[in-house]
Write a protein that binds this DNA or RNA. Structure first.
Lengths: 141, 141
DNA sequence: TATGGACCCTGTAGCAACTACAGGGTCAAG
DNA sequence: CTTGACCCTGTAGTTGCTACAGGGTCCATA
């Protein structure tokens, strides 16, 4: 029933390592809380909300800079939320690009793995696929 | 028609920054070439092949450690290529996992963006989606 | 009252995989 | 003989943490 809590408790409540909480404070993402007489950080519910927001955003893949911007925007409750939308859309576009890249990658890897004849490295299609085309001739053999 | 070339040329030929080439040398991925009288690195076709292999592997998302392993294996030409196959398969599984993660992420982001009513931040669904459920009550406002 | 263990503090260094200087040396062209 | 493009070494920065080392605090238990 305490209304403040120490860093370990905060970490457990938000699934965040203690070092990470201190790191967020150091880079100015999470406000420094008041200290107890023993110099322990004393967090309150506001900090908990803030950190939850940060962690959820991070889980969704927003960068720390994006999280910072989102936090700033979340505080300007009367402003139009276009900027928020833009950050989210930008991130979505980024994620979609990454997926496309990874899918191309996956297809190439699948091709490589499929062609592997389990012979010797000499005839390995994977090594071959990774080697430069006309340069093989110059390789020591 | 020179049979050796300087680091800049090597970089251009493999789409690699000069600093990156030196970095690969420093971490022992690319053999240190002989030097000219003026202490310039003098690369030959073997280095070019090696670096091409490295870059192609990196483009395909292999980690430097994986690349190192692939290079070692590629040199053991008489060994069976199972180890190569295993690295490729492991990497493929990793890529597939990443794609699945990103697709889940994308769906969540799409949902958020779709619901944005372009009103004020106060009513922003995106911010809401990022905020902890029961914690909103405690937010100032 | 002492002591043990769980927790907290600061500060620094490490991870991947580069990238970007600073402060110099080399080399070919004009 | 100077300009400018290139090269050299060494170090520090990037992102987002994570892992110590070397201490201090707090609370329960003997």
């Amino acid at each position: 029933m305490s209304d403040t809590f120490a860093i370990g408790e905060l970490g457990r409540a938000t699934d965040t390592k203690v070092e990470t909480v201190r790191y967020y404070e150091r880079i100015g993402l999470l406000a420094a809380p008041p200290r107890t007489s023993g110099n322990y950080r004393a967090y309150d519910r506001g900090h908990l909300n803030r950190l939850s927001f940060i962690r959820r955003s991070r889980d969704l893949g927003f960068s720390l800079d994006q999280v910072r911007a989102l936090l700033d925007l979340a505080d300007q409750r009367d402003r139009p939320c276009e900027a928020v939308d833009e950050i989210a859309r930008g991130h979505l576009a980024e994620v979609e690009r990454k997926i496309a890249d990874l899918e191309a990658l996956r297809d190439e890897l699948r091709g490589m793995v499929r062609q592997c004849g389990h012979g010797s490295v000499r005839d390995c299609r994977i090594i071959e696929a990774l080697s430069p085309g006309d340069a093989l001739a110059a390789a020591p053999g």
